[in-house]
């Protein structure tokens, strides 16, 4: 908590149109997206966004198409300029930067992975992966070694002299990730990075990202429209709707306590047993209870159902590593599996 967030967005507004400032007044006075478009022909992109992104965490911004998530991520490195608001990176206001200052921050602090890969078709894989270093003017010997290192890390060694068009989509995106890693920046922006890939490859790539994150601890901002992906990756989940934040927080918390019918709709289709962890549904330790066995707080509920054989009368002791942190009643587990929307009337605890 005492840590200063790596990236802070403060009261960020974006209105697309000829006179954003005038339209901003209407929005601040409470005008909605549809009304603004009908009356003033301006499109409300983002509305009063306040998000803190902690260093070393994956912040996932989720929303349906048109919710403003791609617009949001482009504000962080100012590929899009906001109509109003502050963007603080390491406490420095990105809005105050000069052109060269902005270039420096793009070169040294943030790297980006794109939905459509955006590789240079006329350059080899190695040259593509080394692009951030070439831009900085690093000499060939250094950039080649760096590029090779990261290409190998994402499983592409041997392809360095191929061209992007010779690679499959999944491999191209690996190059995209290698390129972002070669930049060696603290912050990685991933704009629907895996959305163009087929489901199996997507799972591979998510695992690769989590694996890399384990050792590199980057500050990752990940955009997706896929809730499963969001829940798998997120340390901090931000849900956008019509350019505004509907709910943000720890993903398990959002899943168990959706604040809004929109989010309830979203989460109702999820395989909760696979996403929810013991930590989120366990209760405090009670006296005089006999435990069937020990489980880890990080286990998902699916594995617990397998252990218990589906019996609801059992209770387990929950460990976080070696220390006892609570107990889990299988009955609570079953309750948690049902989305809140249908259990709302009997919600008495």
């Amino acid at each position: 908590m005492s840590n200063e967030p790596k990236v802070r967005l403060r009261g960020l507004y974006k209105i697309f149109g000829t006179d954003g400032q005038a339209a901003l007044e209407h929005v601040k006075a409470g005008m909605g997206k549809d009304e603004l478009l009908a009356k003033h022909h301006h499109v409300l992109g983002l509305q009063d966004i306040n998000v803190d992104m902690q260093a070393g965490e994956i912040t996932v911004v989720m929303g349906l198409s048109g919710s403003g998530k791609s617009t949001l991520i482009r504000h962080l490195n100012r590929l899009i300029d906001p109509t109003a608001g502050e963007i603080l990176v390491d406490g420095e206001d990105v809005m105050q930067l000069s052109k060269s200052g902005l270039r420096a921050i793009r070169q040294n602090k943030m790297s980006m992975v794109f939905q459509k890969f955006a590789l240079l078709p006329h350059r080899t894989i190695a040259q593509n992966a080394a692009m951030p270093l070439v831009v900085r003017g690093v000499e060939e010997k250094t950039w080649r070694a760096e590029a090779m290192k990261w290409l190998e890390r994402v499983g592409l060694s041997g392809y360095e002299n191929h061209y992007p068009a010779q690679l499959s989509g999944g491999m191209q995106q690996r190059v995209g990730i290698a390129r972002a890693l070669t930049a060696n920046t603290d912050i990685m922006l991933m704009d629907e990075a895996f959305s163009a890939l087929d489901p199996l490859i997507r799972t591979d790539m998510q695992d690769l990202l989590l694996e890399l994150q384990e050792e590199l601890h980057k500050t990752i901002v990940f955009i997706t429209h896929d809730l499963d992906e969001a829940l798998k990756l997120a340390d901090h989940l931000v849900i956008l709707k019509d350019g505004a934040v509907v709910q943000q927080g720890e993903p398990q918390g959002i899943l168990l306590n959706p604040k809004d019918p929109y989010i309830e709709d979203f989460v109702s289709d999820i395989n909760r047993a696979r996403v929810l962890r013991v930590r989120s549904v366990m209760g405090p330790l009670k006296e005089g209870v006999s435990y069937e066995g020990d489980v880890q707080a990080g286990d998902n509920l699916e594995s617990l159902i397998a252990i218990s054989g589906g019996e609801t009368g059992k209770t387990y002791r929950v460990l976080e590593g070696e220390t006892v942190v609570g107990q889990l009643d299988m009955l609570d587990l079953v309750k948690a599996l049902v989305p809140r929307i249908s259990s709302a009337p009997s919600e008495a605890l």
Binding site: I105, N108, M112, F114, A118
Partner: peptide, 14 residues
Amino acid sequence: DQDVIEAANAFGMS
């Protein structure tokens, strides 16, 4: 391709 141009911008090309 505008995507490639965007990538060039994002990595701070002049």
